[in-house]
Amino acid sequence: MTIFTTLYNHINFSIVLFLFFLCLYSIGSFMVLYHLIRFGIGVPPKIVALAYFIGSVLLLFMLVSAYAFVDVSDAKQLLQQWYSTSQQPFR
């Protein structure tokens, strides 16, 4: 039980979740790019693959920036308020 408590206290779950999402997105993007380049016939699939790649890089950069600047303290406070309100008995 101690090991779980230690892990819980030391692992930042938001980063784990964020990296998991990035990993999923990378795998999906690879599938799209691979299919477009490997099986696409003619010019349009290659152009779409290039546009998708550039768009993905830009969006990922913006997502990482948004994650770096996110402030969850207010959200936590809000959740605690909601939780304490829901615990009050009806009158």
Partner: peptide, 16 residues
Amino acid sequence: SLYALVVMIYVLIWWY
């Protein structure tokens, strides 16, 4: 800032 993060995740899923 949290809303911006959620929107960025939504946009990324939309792009995919």
